[in-house]
């Protein structure tokens, strides 16, 4: 997942590129109105690459397994087949799929709340207050945030095992709530969006340190709350490895791990499966259900996401 950046300052870059520009002057090439079709073709090709599997997935859920194999891959099946797939899927082991979705929602929501409670004050303190160990904490945050969370999955298992938390939903929610990248985003936001003099004024007016945070910083923090929330939600909803290892009971799976279980029950992928089989269109429908929450967030977040990713960058 992409993360945020600080752009180089234009003032620093302008002198550096000026000589380049003068050198370029010699290699003048006139291109009067001649349109090269290649860029458009390349963009179109990649658009198909990115979109086609999604479209196919949407349509696959409306087909029977037979239609999936024999009909045009990009044709619509029928509402009837969609309904049948839905019934078969929700009937799978007595509505287990809905249970998985509820698990995912519960884990990500609790982790989201805890992440925000932890991350916003921490980012604020790193940006706008002085305390012993601040620099060390900031550097530690940067290093840990660049390390992929999967590195710690097996060690986390050993730790959780020692404190007998394996199988408890807190064994995934607590590690989810540890979110150094969120702290960094909050740090960047507070150090650029809130002038220190504003806090000084609040303190002069008699605000306590906590009062300054609550009355000045928090009301201005909405954009970074949304930004951290977005990244946390997407990262935790799509996490597979951690719950796969820490939640061995199948009634505790989040939906991502549940998809793996469904995959095991598809005869075309696992010929040894017995009576509890799942048809391929049902698996496609389950995949759609599993991604819907993130997809909805994505649909509404692009503009705001880009603004956020370049938070702390120079004005556009």
């Amino acid at each position: 997942m992409p993360t945020d950046f600080r752009s180089p300052e234009p003032s620093a870059s302008a002198p550096a590129t000026a000589p380049v520009v003068t050198r370029l002057a010699r290699s003048r090439r006139a291109r009067p109105g001649l349109k090269n079709p290649l860029p458009a073709f390349v963009l179109l090709l990649f658009a198909v690459f990115f979109v086609l599997p999604v479209v196919w997935l949407l349509l696959a859920a409306t087909k029977t397994d037979d239609q999936l194999v024999h009909a045009n891959p990009l044709s619509f099946g029928s509402w009837h087949a969609l309904r049948a797939n839905w019934d078969a899927l929700t009937g799978y082991q007595g509505d287990t799929v809905m249970l998985w979705l509820r698990n995912s929602a519960l884990y990500t929501f609790l982790a989201l709340v805890m992440t925000l409670v932890v991350v916003i004050p921490a980012g604020y303190a790193l940006a706008l207050t002085e305390f012993r160990g601040r620099h060390t904490l900031l550097v530690a945050t940067l290093v840990v945030m660049l390390m992929p969370s999967a590195t710690l999955v097996v060690p986390l298992f050993l730790e959780m095992n020692a404190v007998h938390l394996i199988g408890s939903m807190w064994s995934v929610i607590l590690p989810y709530s540890f979110y150094p990248f969120g702290v960094y985003l909050a740090y960047i936001y507070f150090s650029t969006a809130i002038p220190r003099c504003l806090l000084e004024a609040a303190r002069l007016d008699g605000c306590s340190e906590f009062g300054a945070f609550r009355r000045v910083a928090l009301p201005l923090a909405t954009p970074v709350v949304a930004l951290v929330g977005f990244f946390s939600l997407v990262a935790n909803w799509t996490n597979y490895f951690l719950p796969y290892v820490l939640l061995p009971q199948d009634d505790q799976f989040p939906v991502q791990v549940g998809l793996g279980t469904l995959l095991d029950a598809v005869p075309q992928f696992n010929p040894t499966v017995g009576t509890l089989s799942v048809e391929r269109p049902e698996l496609a429908l389950a995949t759609l259900l599993a991604i819907t929450p993130v997809l909805v967030v994505f649909l509404f977040s692009q503009r705001f996401l880009v603004a956020g990713m370049l938070a702390g960058a120079t004005k556009d």
Binding site: M1, F50, V51, P53, V54, W56, L57, V234, T238, N239, Y240, Q256, V257, L259, G260, L263, L283, A284, T287, A290, I291, V294, L295, V297, F298
Partner: peptide, 13 residues
């Protein structure tokens, strides 16, 4: 858009 399918979902597709 496919970013929304990160994780197990992308493998299914």
């Amino acid at each position: 858009i496919p970013g929304a399918l990160a994780g197990a979902a992308s493998v299914m597709v």
